[in-house]
Every structure is written in structure tokens, then in C-alpha cells.
Amino acid sequence: MIKMGKRDMIFGGLLFLICLLLLNESRNFYVPPDTVAGPALWPRIVLGLLAVLSLVLMYVGYKHIPKGQKENQEAVSGNQGSLTKKWASLTPGNKRVLAAMLATMIFLFLFQPLGFIISITAYFLVITYILEPTKNPKQIGFRIVQALALTAFIYMVFSKGLSVRLPAGIIPATWLL
């Protein structure tokens, strides 16, 4: 478990590196001739300020690490274990968050190829399951009805009502007319 002070230190360090990377990138920006305020001016001001404050965050984070922990920092970070052990050590809440993130990524990936009907229905069922796992057939049936009703509602509101083009995917587009 990473404590707050250490987390801030790591975040501050990462942020500082990102600032350096972006500042370096801004050197490649096109500068129009005779300009006093090119495209790099504003980002450089903002990134400069952010770099300084990320160093301050690192320093304040370091100050907030309890003394004993500062000495054991490296030992703690080196002892992480395998992926399955890490998963097992997570709280149920964090497991749900990670599972929801993964489900959302898969939904994004499959939204266009599968189409909105299948992907929304499946996504609804998966995240409902992540929230409250069940093996009760009656409850599963009820959730399938809810998922289909929601998909139909979204189709009516967005596609029919607001003329938003939702991807048809593997379902022939003519079926949705």
C-alpha cells in the first residue's frame, strides 16, 4: 500500500518529467517570422509553472513521509509479488473499479464493430454483474429485460429523436430503420 506522501512524491516526479518532455517538444513548434507570441509561448509559461509546482509537490510529499518509512522506501517498493497476488491483495472496492475500467475499455473497443445494440446490452449486463454478482436466473432475466429496454430507449432518444448516427455494427443497418 503506497502512503499519501510517497504517492505525491511519485506523482510530482512523473509530472515534472512530463513537463520536461513537453517543454522539449515545444522547441519543435513552428514559429512564424516576426511573431512576438507564437504557438509555444503560452504552453511554455504554463509548463514552466507546472514544473516548478511539481517539484514543490515532490518536496512536500517527501516531508509527509513518516521517518521510519523513508528508510524502508526501497525495500517496500521492491517487494511487490506476482500479478495474481497483487489482485488478491486488493480490496473488493478496488477490484470492482479495475473490473469496471476493463469492461469500459472493452466496450470502447467493441462499440463500433459490434454496434450499439449488442455492445450497450452486454456492457449493461457486465457492469451490473460487477456491481452485484448474481446466479439467480430470475434476477438475470430481469437484468436482460432492463438492458434491452435501456438500449431501445437510447435508440429512440438518440437515433430516432436526435438523429445521432449510432453504429449498427454486425446488425444490418436496414433493420434499424
Partner: peptide, 10 residues
Amino acid sequence: IPIIAIFSMI
């Protein structure tokens, strides 16, 4: 929660 998630993304 699933309804808000889906509505937000759509």
C-alpha cells in the same frame, strides 16, 4: 449506475 455510465458515454 449502469444507466448513468451508458448515458454519459453515448
